[in-house]
Simulated assay, not measured.
Amino acid sequence: MHVGIESSAGGAAWELELRRLAASEEDTARGMFFQGTLDVVGFLGGDGAVARCKGVAGLWEINPVHMYPVSRFLRLSSTAARLLAPQLDGFEGVLRRMGTQATVDFVSSMFGRDLMHTAAGSPRKLLQSLGDAYRAAVSYGDRYPLWTGEKSARFIMRRDFMPAAYHEGVLQGVLEAIGAREVRVAGRQVALLDSEYELSWK
């Protein structure tokens, strides 16, 4: 179970705002993550919700491979989470779903295909290469595994702007995409922009 800095929706929204304030214009993410979130919003909330999220982010046309300020993604994500929380088990449920969608979009991109080819069906190789894959998708942060067993690891993220619930969805999705079974992911925030994830699979 994810343990956040705040458990309430209001606290989670405020946490996203603090993250946004910590970001600079040089902290960027590829448009595929924006589009993936908008796909979730459109599916569950309709065109009006999509328009509202685009307006908040100040982005009306999004190129999946272009880099955009992560501060805009945080605005979009916060609005999406508030709009969809009643349908997806609260604020963190929305973030988790957004993370899962991000994995779907990433795996189908040229960056994700390179990662899956390098991993060659091995969850360990996947996690070892995941930090490099993140660097192809975002301009900030550091990510790496610490091995705790043959089929378990603690995955470390430093200076990442998305909450642990989002990356729980990402990590669950990418391990399942490589063919891992009975995947378990439990994330925790250790600081505003730092998080750690206990991973296991069969």
Rank of each mutant, 00 (worst) to 15 (best):
V40I: 14
H2C: 06
R158N: 03
V185M: 11
G131R: 10
A13F: 09
S8Q: 11
L130V: 05
A23V: 10
E182Y: 14
G90F: 10
N63G: 02
F73Y: 08
A186P: 00
D47F: 03
P69H: 06
A153D: 14
G149P: 01
I178E: 07
A57N: 01
S109I: 11
L18S: 11
R188N: 06
R19D: 09
V56T: 01
G169I: 13
T79N: 00
D89H: 09
E15V: 08
R158E: 08
G149Y: 03
L126S: 12
H167I: 08
A9K: 11
L192V: 09
L38N: 01
R143V: 07
R75T: 01
V41I: 06
R52P: 00
A177Q: 07
G42Y: 01
F155D: 01
H117K: 15
N63R: 12
L83Y: 04
W147K: 06
P69W: 04
Q101Y: 13
A81V: 03
L127E: 07
G131P: 09
M162R: 04
T100P: 01
G48Y: 05
F33A: 13
G55T: 14
A191N: 05
A177C: 08
M162E: 12
S195G: 04
G10R: 07
R52M: 10
R113T: 14
R135P: 00
M67Y: 11
S78P: 01
R143Q: 10
D27F: 11
L83Q: 06
I156P: 00
G112L: 06
D89G: 03
P163W: 06
R113E: 15
L115M: 15
S129C: 08
T103M: 10
E168K: 02
R30D: 11
S7Q: 15
S24C: 12
L44D: 00
S77F: 00
G112I: 11
G58P: 03
P123C: 07
Q101W: 03
L146S: 09
P163H: 12
E25G: 13
D39W: 01
L44P: 00
R188F: 08
D142R: 12
A12S: 07
S8A: 13
D27P: 08
G169E: 14
G48S: 14
A22L: 10
Y134H: 09
F33R: 09
W14Q: 05
E150C: 02
V94K: 01
T37G: 12
L192Q: 01
S152W: 09
K202E: 15
E61Y: 02
A23C: 14
P86R: 10
G112H: 03
E176Y: 04
E182Q: 15
R184M: 10
V70T: 13
V41C: 05
E61L: 02
A177N: 04
P86H: 09
L192I: 07
V40S: 04
G173W: 05
S122W: 13
V94Y: 02
G141D: 00
S71V: 02
F161N: 00
R181T: 14
M32F: 13
D142W: 08
F33Q: 09
P163F: 08
D27A: 14
I156R: 05
S77Y: 00
Y197C: 00
L126E: 11
A85F: 02
V50W: 01
G4Q: 10
G149W: 07
L171K: 02
